Structure formats: structure tokens, C-alpha cells
Simulated scan of single mutants.
Amino acid sequence: MDKINLVREIRELKTQLSYSKNIGFFFGAGTSCALKIPNVEQLTTGIEEKLEGEQLKNFKIIKADLEPTLRPRKVNIEDILNQIRRIRELTGESKKEYLKVSGERARELDKEICTVIYDIIAEKEAIADIDNTKKFFAWLSLLNRDFSKEVFTTNYDLIIEKSLEASQIPYFDGFVGSYEPFFWQESIDQFVTKNDLTQNWIRLWKIHGSLSWFWKEDTKTKSQKVIRIGKIDNIKDEENELVIYPSKEKYDSSKKQPFIAYFDRLKNYLLSGELLFVFTGYSFSDQHINEIIFNCLRQNNRLTALVFFFQDAEVENLHRHTSSYMNLNVFGPTKAIINGNLGEWEFLKTELKSPAEKFDHYWNQTENKFILGDFNALANFLITNSGKKEAIETITK
């Protein structure tokens, strides 16, 4: 396997981050896992442990039915939610059954699972150390760019919102209003201009839903719309269903709901011209998202994608599908993909500009591995490279 000069690539990375006029981010589950928020596999186990009686029985029936079709990977909670919602749709949420699970019971199970997800994540959020997330967004907020700062995420926890609000950094997610904030589609369809007062606001697009989103029936159209609710004291008291991993179409088809509009926004953003787009914590396991990303990489030769992985296996897996993409560079602990070539990192101290040049913020010399696949380390690297550490500390305090 070819050797890749790490110091040279880091130098190139620093240049890209410093001079790119337009930079966006995509956060996957790994960014929350770095803060000890459970991922989908851990959630799946936790939910099964908390369900009881008939709901646990139905959960296991649906899980067992999915296992043969998804091998060799394990069935996760998002697969199960998809199947539950198919049952709800097929049965019209009636007493009719599919897999010996009625539509009524599927609806109850769906709501209970989402309630348990909320409780599990909320418990971990309450004790999570969000200092590095706050620093990351302070860094992003300080960037002086002519373009909007856009962050897409598959995470439905509220870590990002809490971090932004704790530092009083303005952001926009497509919802407007104060009593029951509603989704405003037109705000997603248009990109901000230089004269827009909100140009420097961070745009947050949660493409898999959120713990603060709920389905609510529109009494006029009898269809479901999504509203956003703030802090909730007890999720069990909330009558409306959570919008987590929204795979059902319970809405007026004439109005885009946020998760659909966000996918369109992602595509249009990646095709918008010159752009540096950074992936962190995303394993490329969602084919719907991957299709958008790879199509845009093919169509926009001014798009450069940087991917930071926590495991080398993810690097090797992505290389099987992306070896022909020259505008995609991938960084793993000991392996990388640079200009379509898979290779191993080679750290040469002789490449450093001086013996005093620091490297411990991106390379663990003891373990001989690149560490920016860990979101906490990536945030520290960005802040260290920015030269604005004091200003960032002031914002986060």
C-alpha cells in the first residue's frame, strides 16, 4: 500500500480551511457519540431492554422479520421504525394485522419507541460535556465568509441547539413563530444574499428529525404538519408524536415538510459552486444521503469533500465506492484516500518546518495514528489553526 505524507496533507488541509470562501459541515452520529450520546445500535439495545409485555413481543416479531433481509449487518432501531410505519400505512392504523401486528398496536409501539428514545438521549444530554461543541460553533460563527454557514446533521439529539444557545450564537432551522413554531418552506428554498441581516447566522438542517419536532394534525386539512416545541418537562405528557427518523408520509403532500426540504437543500447546496464540505462522524451507511453526495461530487467539479473517520474500516469501505472521485479526500486513523488513492499515513518529523512545530493536535505519536476522526480532536484542531482561540474562549464563557 502506498505511503501518504501526513505533514504535507495537514499543511494542505490548513490552507483549504483558511482560504475557502464557502465551507459547510455534515455531522453524523459519531459527533454525538464523541459526547457519549448513544448511537443507533446502542439505542436499539436500550429500547429493547425498556419495552415490556405486548410491545416487547411485537418489537421482537418485527426485528426477527427484518434480520434475514439485512444480513450481514445488524437490525437497528431505524430499520424497525421504518417497518412499524409500513405496517401503520398498510393497515390504516386499524385492527388489520401484518406479521400478526395490528395497525393500532403498531401506532402505539411507534410512539412508545420514540418516547423511550427521547428519555434515553435526554438523560445522556443532561450530563454531556458540550464544551468542544460550543467551541466549534464559536469558531464557525467567527468565520468571515460571504456565504451562509450551513450544518447538516442526521442526529436528532439537541446538543447542537443547546451549544448554540448557551453561547448566544444566532441560528436558523427553517422554523418560525413563538407559540408553536411552524416550518416555513420558502426560507429553505432561497439562499441568503450579502445584504441579508441573517447572512452570518448558522443554518442548521436536521435531516432525520429532532427531539423537538412533533406531528400535529391540521384541523382544516386533516393532515399532519410538523411543529417545533421547546423544553419539555415530561415527554410522556406530550400527546403528539415525535418526529424521529421520519419515514412516513403523514402530511399534506402540497407542503414540503422539513426533512424533505432539507434533502433538497443539501443537493442544491452541494451544487451551488465552489464549496469545501466537511463530513465528521458520518459512516456513509445511509444510501439516500450517499446518492445525493456522490451525484453532486460528479456534477460539481468545484466541490471538495473532506471526510474524517474514526475507524480505518470505514476508509476501506468508502474506497470501494469512491476510488474514481478526485474531489473527495478521506482521513482515517492509519489510512487515507487522497486523490482517489488508498494509502497509509507516514508521519515524518523531517517534514515539519521546525523542531518546535506542534503536531500533537492531529497525530498521536504514541499510538501512531491520526486523531481528527474524533470530533473533539477535530474541534480542537480547527480552533488551534484559526488563531482565534482567545476570542472563541470568550464567546463560550
Rank of each mutant, 00 (worst) to 15 (best):
E186P: 00
N301F: 03
K225E: 09
D119A: 11
K389F: 03
D119G: 06
E367K: 04
D237T: 08
K216V: 04
F259T: 13
N132L: 01
E393H: 02
Y262T: 03
I4K: 10
E9F: 08
F26S: 09
Y325I: 12
A34S: 15
T15Y: 09
G103R: 13
T31K: 09
I289M: 04
N144K: 07
S354N: 13
S212A: 13
E150K: 09
S386C: 06
T115H: 11
I130R: 05
E48Q: 09
L270H: 14
Y325N: 07
K60S: 14
F347Y: 14
W215F: 09
Y282G: 01
Q257K: 10
T31M: 06
D173K: 07
N327V: 07
D2E: 13
N376Y: 00
E367N: 08
L56C: 06
D173Q: 11
Y269H: 11
K63N: 10
K36A: 12
I117R: 01
A106W: 01
E161P: 00
F381K: 02
R88C: 14
V75T: 08
R298Y: 12
Y118W: 15
I84Q: 14
D131L: 04
T91V: 02
V151R: 00
E123C: 09
F309A: 07
L342G: 06
I383A: 03
C33P: 01
S354M: 03
T115L: 03
D65T: 05
N39I: 06
L306V: 10
I159R: 05
E48C: 07
C296L: 02
L70P: 02
